[in-house]
Design a protein around this nucleic acid. Structure first.
Lengths: 226, 226
DNA sequence: CGATCGCTTGAGTAGGATCAACAAGAGTGG
DNA sequence: CCACTCTTGTTGATCCTACTCAAGCGATCG
């Protein structure tokens, strides 16, 4: 399903996104000139690991899961991307997608021709710089996930995830809404859904209340002690 | 310990390294103009996670372990780097080191001032491009590690590591030497040293012979079946 | 020749995956 | 508004992987 026009809300999303936010408006417009929009339903697959990709993708709305597939079809998420995030960017230089991508919920995606973006980046140092910063950030994210997998138990990872959603100096209680299904969160954290559920149970004793997608934290310090 | 001059073998290392290999000689010389060399003994720490780093590093010889530290001082490797590899590159743009670095064996390291390199990258699209390619490659490495951790058992990871050292079309038997201690390999693969040892034991039944640092593979297909 | 280091092997245990049953919503259609 | 169904999340029981701690082995080195 292809729609033609970027809505004005799409523009605010893109202009505020990590990749574009520091670039001058004219540059952004040049890059987005021939953008194509695609919409996907939940579980639609955008591409498979190893596919050669001609585009770079931006999430305008919805949620995209990047994952690798092992033998016996098991899947492991390597990233979960939401509004404003760019992905499949390294296909530009590596030639092929390093992971598969599927919509974790109904999503709208902007596609930009890779070779065009590569050319612009080669000509405009600011774009190259934005690219570099994006890759640094993404690299750090992946490194974070790897380190968490290796250093923390499932419950600790969940606690750490919750803490990462508390504003800096939260001493009193605080609550927020999970941005996606628990299923997806489990995948992102690299645990089975059942393990996530049990982790929430455990954390209940430390002042975490979970109702549907709402999370309430009453004792931040108890979480950090985990 | 600071030595002053890049030896000619250092030059071949650098010129052949992933980062420099596509750049014109003159550019490389410009970047390396004020390089400082440092030597480290095994277990020397180059920097700690969170330090603000003023340099980008190149391994000229030896082995550097990049790791994160969790509470109770447990360490998790996020990368192991050998001759010709660049690291701490994202400190340029993120400001701080995302991981600690220590010499896993006696090592010689070249340091380049970050701000200088950043300036050159901003002015020379080829350098920016090299940077981008480096980051893509590094990102893929980390993603690989993450996916392997989540999809494979310890034994499978070891098998996969061994296979990655076999040339493409190896049908007959093949042997190679581990580039570092088993200890280090265990860290890199994210398993306890004991688990690595046991994995080798298991693989022995599939035609893998381990003597010291020498690995012999007799039945590549048996490994792939794991 | 002890001594240290690197590695292996053994036994016990904890964390988490898996399978299965069940509860609780969220739609859907009457 | 209520049954019915489908999806999503929880809980329980079992099993398996891999970590931990401890001991043993084999080299290499002073």
């Amino acid at each position: 399903m292809e729609t033609l026009q970027l809505t004005s809300s799409d523009w605010t999303t893109l202009l505020g996104s990590r990749f574009f936010v520091r670039l001058p408006r004219s540059t952004v417009e040049a890059i987005l000139e021939e953008t194509r929009l695609s919409t996907y339903e939940e579980h639609d697959v955008l591409f498979h690991q190893g596919d050669s990709i001609g585009d770079v993708f931006f999430v305008l709305s919805g949620l995209i899961r990047l994952y690798r597939v092992g033998k016996d079809r098991r899947e492991a998420d390597v990233a979960v991307l939401s509004k404003g995030e760019m992905f499949a960017e390294n296909a530009i230089y590596l030639g092929r997608a390093t992971a598969s991508a599927e919509a974790a919920e109904a999503s709208v995606i902007a596609r930009i021709d890779s070779s065009k973006l590569r050319k612009i980046a080669a000509a405009d140092p600011d774009v190259a710089q934005a690219f570099i910063e994006h890759l640094c950030h993404r690299g750090k994210m992946t490194e974070d996930m790897l380190a968490q997998d290796r250093l923390l138990t499932a419950t600790q990872r969940v606690a750490s995830y919750i803490l990462s959603h508390c504003p800096n100096g939260t001493n009193t209680s605080f609550s927020f809404r999970l941005p996606f299904q628990k299923n997806i969160l489990a995948g992102k954290l690299g645990v089975a859904p059942e393990a996530l559920s049990r982790a929430f149970s455990t954390l209940r004793q430390s002042g975490v209340i979970v109702k549907g997608r709402m999370i309430e934290i009453h004792d931040r310090h108890a979480l950090e002690r985990f």
